[in-house]
Amino acid sequence: MRLKAQHIEHFYAQEHILHDINLEIESSCITAIVGESGSGKTTLLAILSSLLRASSGSVHYDDISLEAIKNIDEFRKKNIGFVFQFHYLIDYLNIEENITLNALDATKSSVLLKALGIKHLASRYSDEVSGGERQRAAIARALINDPTFVFADEPTGNLDTKNAIGVFELFKEFKETGFVVATHDKKIIDYADTIIEMEDGFVKNIYTQ
């Protein structure tokens, strides 16, 4: 699946956040959106992932425009996963229950837990595991429905170097899924297939490695 953004403009409280963004992102690869704070990378991520509607322009998943999708919740459930800076696990659910919260097939959780190395934590609660393990659980939750794209906003922002590298290596392991990662973390450069460099709301460079 190909994600295509055309002429994206976005304003927030009369401030021009994004200027004429045009880009294409392939699934099955890691795409990093990098840039300084305020460069517009998170806003772009939110627009690409359907969380935010652009002031103008269009986002297409293959030939389907986000605007034309009637049931965006269902589309999100089947095609999109999210990983946030904070794990946002629900504290009254254990790790496995968090992962299967909106799963189309809950039986996949055990395979996923094993792949992410947290199978032994399935019955624990979020306050009983480490920060790195929580983020792994959040990644498992994002992957449970085999989405085409997982959007990650500063997924390593709260992790130490070792855990941060662990997260990027995990992204690399799931070859079928496209990861779009907005981050400050320069370590992403070693893992990303495509890097989109943002500056003051403009795409400054797009390069593939």
Partner: peptide, 12 residues
Amino acid sequence: DPMSLILQGGAR
């Protein structure tokens, strides 16, 4: 709005 989850991270 799920955007609030992103904004809580302080990003833009």
